[in-house]
Amino acid sequence: MQLLTCPWCGDREEAEFRYGGQAGVPYPADPRALSDAEWGRYLFVRDNPAGPFAERWVHSAGCRRWFTAVRDTVTHEFLREAP
């Protein structure tokens, strides 16, 4: 059970959160302009590093707000939280 710092609520147990995967993957400005391969990458391909990872969490059993955190996927250490 990791201890996450919600930017709005402070330290809360991991069970209050839901994971949202890699941060910073924007919805394409014009999906029609993408090839099938590019669209497929948007849909399915995400980074999967062993180490620091900018990822999204939502405080689903709390304020229900999303935020981005940098977490080390090997140590589970949170390096940075930001809305």
Binding site: M1, E14, R18, G21, E55, T75, H76
Partner: peptide, 13 residues
């Protein structure tokens, strides 16, 4: 476990 992890460790809950 819901999150990405390479630590061969999960959450006890």
């Amino acid at each position: 476990d819901g999150y990405n992890g390479y630590g061969q460790r999960g959450s006890f809950h």
